Amino acid sequence: MSATYPRFKAAACHVAPVFLDSMGTAEKAAALIEEAARAGASLVVFPEGYMPGFPLWAALRAPIRNHDLFKRLAAESVRLDGPELAVVRAAARRHGVIVSMGFSEGTDASVGCLWNSNVLIGRDGRTLNHHRKLVPTFFEKLIWASGDARGLRVTPTDLGRVGMLICGENTNPLARYALMAQGEQVHISTYPPAWPTRVPGDSAAYDLKRAIEIRAGAHSFEAKVFNIVCSATLDADAKATLSDGDAALADVIERTPAGVSMVLDPAGALVTETHEGEERILYADIDTAACVEPKQFHDVVGYYNRFDIFRLSVDRTPREPISFGAEAAAPAWTDADADEPARSEPQGLSLVEAGRRAAR
Rank of each mutant, 00 (worst) to 15 (best):
Tyr5Asp: 03
Thr155Phe: 07
Phe221Gln: 11
Glu345Val: 15
Ser110Met: 03
Leu282Pro: 01
Ala31Ser: 14
His219Thr: 14
Tyr303Val: 08
Gly217Asn: 02
Gly49Glu: 05
Arg311Ser: 12
Lys141Tyr: 11
Ser231Lys: 03
Ala247Asp: 15
Gly183Ile: 04
Asn170Cys: 14
Thr241Trp: 02
Arg356Thr: 08
Thr256Ala: 02
Gly96Glu: 08
Ala354His: 05
Phe46Pro: 01
Asp207Thr: 09
Asp21Thr: 11
Tyr304Pro: 02
Asp235His: 00
Val300Asn: 08
Gly112Ala: 15
Leu165Cys: 05
Ile33Glu: 01
Ala86Gln: 12
Met262Cys: 10
Val199Tyr: 15
Ser313Phe: 12
Leu69Glu: 00
Ala204Cys: 10
Lys224Ile: 07
Glu340Leu: 15
Asp108Ala: 15
Ala248Met: 13
Ala181Lys: 13
Ala269Trp: 07
Glu84Arg: 08
Arg316Asn: 09
Ala330His: 13
Asn66Lys: 09
Arg356Met: 12
Val260Ile: 15
Pro257Val: 04
Phe221His: 12
Ala248Glu: 14
Arg153Glu: 10
Ser146Ala: 13
Leu152Val: 12
Thr171Gly: 09
Gly217Phe: 08
Phe307Ser: 04
Ala354Leu: 12
Pro257Asp: 03
Asn227His: 15
Val252Trp: 00
Thr317Gly: 03
Ala204His: 13
Thr241Tyr: 09
Ser22Trp: 06
Arg150Ile: 05
Val15Glu: 02
Val263Ile: 09
Leu165Tyr: 04
Arg210Gln: 13
Pro193Asn: 02
Asp246Lys: 10
Met101Ser: 06
Thr4Gln: 13
Ala90His: 09
Gly24Ser: 07
Pro346Asp: 10
Val292Asn: 07
Asp148Ile: 05
Ser261Ala: 09
Cys113Ile: 15
Gly49Asn: 11
Pro63Tyr: 13
Val99Leu: 01
Leu20Gln: 07
Lys9Ile: 12
Ala358Pro: 04
Val186Trp: 01
Ser117Gln: 07
Ala330Glu: 12
Gly40Asn: 06
Val97Gly: 00
Asp265Thr: 04
Asp299Met: 02
Leu312Ile: 11
Thr25Trp: 09
Arg215Thr: 14
Arg357Ala: 06
Glu279Thr: 03
Gly302Tyr: 02
Thr274Ala: 13
Leu159Asp: 04
Ser243His: 03
Thr272Asn: 08
Leu114Pro: 01
Tyr177Trp: 13
Val154Lys: 05
Asp315Ile: 09
Ala329Tyr: 08
Ser110Ile: 10
Thr4His: 09
Val99Gln: 02
Asp308Ser: 06
